[in-house]
Design a protein around this nucleic acid. Structure first.
Lengths: 132, 132
DNA sequence: CAAACATATGAACATCTGTTCATATGTTAG
DNA sequence: CTAACATATGAACAGATGTTCATATGTTTG
């Protein structure tokens, strides 16, 4: 018999069967989890977060956003596309200009919870500076 | 005078000053938004989402997670480090084995809202298949 | 129609990210 | 102490991602 590597030994030996048996049936659809990760990826970029943030305040056109964030029209347009595909943003045409707005209240909740987490975990870090 | 490019013209001409003046002062701290994007980046990976999901059910050790997700111990360990640095997960040593658990209720809220958004926006896509 | 303009998009490029592999660290048993 | 084992981590590599540049599309004005 070939010598088994660490990972194999670990998986067969160190594992806690009562936990595995309990959790395995609860595992949700892989596709669902993939979509969820894709959604959060959209929030995981400074430019897109900033775009969402300015849209909190008001509907606005691509140029307005580019001006506010001090970035090129092209970069903003590319990112608006990503946000739109994720259904976080919707657009409305008015003549030459296209206005963008938040498409969903979950955006506010998700960003709000993110902010709360940052504040709380930052507080905890202050208290337990040592355990890094 | 050199010919000005489109972006410049756009920023100076097509912009809506009443909107910009209203939104500019509301812009939050750049650093805060950066941290927020960093946080969501952590949620934006299938492996990490799956780890968080199994930890919903129960505290468990690295090997358990590796076995459940059918991945190597090393890959899981690397990702647990990321989750821990983001304060989404905490660890507790018991002899040789290290148990990981969710560190924060915001994790549940954020993931929950993400799921809701997916379901709703998926519903909307069914209704308005055309506007892609 | 053509010119001007707001926005969208494809390709290219540099950077970032996740996994693997090898190995280090820390803990327990003998 | 040493062997065995659970976990952690550094380096390297492949694939993903965001911006830029050039240009296309769609709309209004004259």
């Amino acid at each position: 018999m070939a010598k088994r590597d660490h990972a194999e030994v670990c998986a067969e030996v160190c594992t806690h069967p009562e936990i595995l048996d309990k959790v395995k049936p609860e595992m949700p659809d892989e596709e669902r989890l993939y979509d969820l990760a894709e959604l959060f990826k959209v929030f995981g970029d400074t430019t897109r977060i900033r775009i969402l943030y300015v849209l909190f305040e008001s509907e606005m056109c691509v140029c307005d956003i580019a001006e506010l964030l001090n970035m090129t029209q092209s970069a903003i347009s590319h990112q608006l596309r990503v946000l739109k595909q994720a259904r976080l943003v919707r657009s409305r045409r008015e003549g030459k200009t296209v206005f963008y707005a938040l498409d969903d209240d979950h955006v506010r909740t998700i960003i709000g919870q993110g902010m709360e987490h940052l504040e709380e975990s930052h507080g905890r870090r202050k208290k337990h500076e040592e355990d890094l």
